[in-house]
Simulated assay, not measured.
Amino acid sequence: MSEKRRPGVLHGFKAFLMRGNVVDLAVAVVIGAAFTNIVNSVVKGIINPVVGALGTKSLDSYSSCLKAPCTGTGDSATGVRILWGSVLGATLNFLITAAVVYFLMVLPMSRFLARQEARRKAKEGAHEVIEVTELQVLKEIRDALVAQRGPGHSRP
């Protein structure tokens, strides 16, 4: 008796990994991690010094005391400190990342895809015009032949 072998777990795992969307996602994660380093360098090397020229060297040092007395740092701190500088730094980091991704990746790709779509539609439109013109010519030929036969002949 021969039984059909069911695909093994490893075969299913291999099929899962080889799906296009899984590979694309893995590439996106790797590129995103590398891109994060670039953005962090821009924030650390450009944004923070500009902010430092206006105030402190790092946005992380900006804070407000919600409940006095705010003394010390870390576990030995007393009072309630709101670290709004960290939030501002993270927000700037996000905005820079989003701007770079949009202007360097999304916008050029969408323009490229729009041009391709316009070319495809123009090509289809030209093809339809040719087909309509041929159809009209054939109708005119048919009507001319019917007219030559005379009024007693009808179309089959």
Results as ranks from 00 to 15, higher is better:
residue 5 R to E: 15
residue 32 G to M: 00
residue 109 M to P: 04
residue 51 V to P: 04
residue 75 D to V: 13
residue 109 M to I: 11
residue 8 G to M: 02
residue 5 R to T: 13
residue 24 D to M: 09
residue 110 S to P: 03
residue 98 A to T: 12
residue 77 A to L: 08
residue 12 G to N: 13
residue 119 R to H: 06
residue 10 L to A: 12
residue 5 R to C: 14
residue 143 D to C: 03
residue 80 V to P: 04
residue 80 V to M: 10
residue 117 E to W: 07
residue 51 V to M: 10
residue 37 N to T: 15
residue 128 E to A: 14
residue 113 L to V: 13
residue 12 G to D: 13
residue 24 D to H: 07
residue 10 L to P: 06
residue 116 Q to S: 14
residue 105 M to N: 06
residue 124 E to K: 02
residue 77 A to R: 03
residue 60 D to N: 13
residue 22 V to F: 07
residue 129 V to L: 09
residue 83 L to I: 14
residue 123 K to W: 09
residue 17 L to P: 14
residue 54 L to T: 12
residue 153 H to M: 12
residue 37 N to I: 14
residue 14 K to L: 15
residue 137 V to A: 14
residue 25 L to C: 09
residue 19 R to L: 00
residue 81 R to V: 15
residue 52 G to N: 02
residue 71 T to V: 13
residue 40 N to G: 06
residue 90 A to F: 01
residue 154 S to Y: 11
residue 46 I to W: 01
residue 120 R to G: 05
residue 123 K to P: 03
residue 156 P to D: 15
residue 94 F to C: 08
residue 97 T to R: 02
residue 28 A to H: 01
residue 47 I to T: 06
residue 11 H to C: 15
residue 108 P to A: 04
residue 97 T to I: 08
residue 2 S to R: 05
residue 120 R to A: 15
residue 79 G to T: 10
residue 68 A to M: 09
residue 67 K to T: 15
residue 28 A to G: 06
residue 103 F to P: 11
residue 83 L to D: 15
residue 60 D to Q: 06
residue 52 G to A: 05
residue 52 G to Q: 06
residue 49 P to Y: 01
residue 107 L to E: 11
residue 115 R to T: 13
residue 88 L to F: 10
residue 72 G to I: 03
residue 33 A to M: 08
residue 137 V to F: 09
residue 109 M to N: 09
residue 14 K to I: 15
residue 11 H to M: 14
residue 125 G to P: 04
residue 18 M to V: 07
residue 4 K to P: 03
residue 122 A to C: 01
residue 118 A to G: 05
residue 42 V to K: 00
residue 61 S to H: 12
residue 103 F to W: 10
residue 106 V to L: 08
residue 59 L to H: 03
residue 137 V to P: 04
residue 152 G to M: 12
residue 149 R to F: 12
residue 76 S to A: 10
